[in-house]
């Protein structure tokens, strides 16, 4: 099983610029339950550092993985955020 198939939910923030990827991730996490895994797909390259920083500084969440993917010629930045038990 990959993280992608494990994800409870996917949040699409493609196109959104700072601070919206972080803000929307937080809002999505609030609607999830403990143990859930959120996949966040962004096109903002700054989201790599920002989501990492947000997850480190926020209680109850942890960043499981981040990756850069090519989606039809467009670079997307994918983040996996786990809601801690």
């Amino acid at each position: 099983m990959s993280l992608q198939t494990d994800a409870t939910e996917t949040l699409d923030v493609k196109g959104a610029a700072c601070p919206m990827p972080v803000v929307k991730t937080k809002q999505a996490v609030d609607d999830l339950s403990q143990g859930d895994l959120l996949e966040v797909v962004a096109t903002d390259s700054g989201s790599m550092s920002d989501i990492d920083g947000w997850a480190s500084g926020t209680d109850g969440v942890s960043l499981v993985d981040q990756e850069e993917r090519d989606e039809g010629g467009e670079t997307v930045y994918v983040h996996y955020v786990q809601v801690e038990e």
Partner: peptide, 8 residues
């Protein structure tokens, strides 16, 4: 402000 609020 919105980012800090996202940090809780």
């Amino acid at each position: 402000a919105s980012t800090a609020a996202a940090f809780g």
